[in-house]
Write a protein that binds this DNA or RNA. Sequence first.
DNA 1: AACCAGGGTGAGC
DNA 2: GCTCACCATGGT
Length: 279
Amino acid sequence: MTNITYENRSFIVEGTLLDLQLTLVESAQVFHWREDANGHFSAVVAGRAVSVIPRENGFLLENVMPEDEAFWRNYFDMDRDYDAIADSLEELPIARQAMNCLPGLRVLNQPVWEALIAFILSANNNVPRIRMLAQKISSLSEKGGFPSADELSEVSEAELRRLGCGYRAPYLRQTARMVREGFDLEELRTMTYEEAHRRLLMLPGVGDKVADCVQLFGLGQSEAFPVDVWVERLMKSWFVPDARNRREVCVRAHELFGAQAGIVQQSLFHCARMGLISL
DNA sequence: AACCAGGGTGAGC
DNA sequence: GCTCACCATGGT
């Protein structure tokens, strides 16, 4: 059972399986955490510059305020029963094995805006480059971390292209503009998966896959099942060989994995990428 | 030199 | 509704 205590501007987190390296750096659900030579992790999340220091049976989260405990507990998804999800997959041994294979993988609950920007950048791109772009985009903000919608909407398309965003530059800019002009990302939390999905598709640079990532990683809608090239391959190999396209894979995944399909997806995705699932 | 990467868009059907 | 060429960039 996870226990959190506050001491000297830090949370001491004990009794968690959370694999920091896997979850913050390797899992490709978040792109702006950095690991230093000491094995410490750092990032700016929702405007807060924090550090994470691994410890025996947990970690230390530095530079936080006591009233933010609920925020971080949610960010690291500490209140979800991952074992129960694995146990529910009795009839889907490959999926169960994938989850048991990566017991420390957690699905972060990121600020929606951060997930939105990161996954617009992710389109037809590779992980090292997404990380690089996330870094460069962060350099645009005065305070570090991702620029706000106000800030980003004032950056020219040419400047974004100069940073290496390529054809995603106008998507970023226009999406930032829409959010600035009143497109309410927080309101999406009050909607069903389908409603929020439809709304997200209105944003330039957001299609089915990016919308699902924003819903899973930013809105906490755990039924969202992002289907990228890896997930499409693995799903066709092991679960839905007759699926004709990504949308059909997505629909069938909901039927197979249920309300927490996205949590299962993370393990499947990572196992496939690591070569732990043959394709 | 083609092909790939956590795809999206618009045109044409 | 559907498919498909095209879109930057850097790595293999």
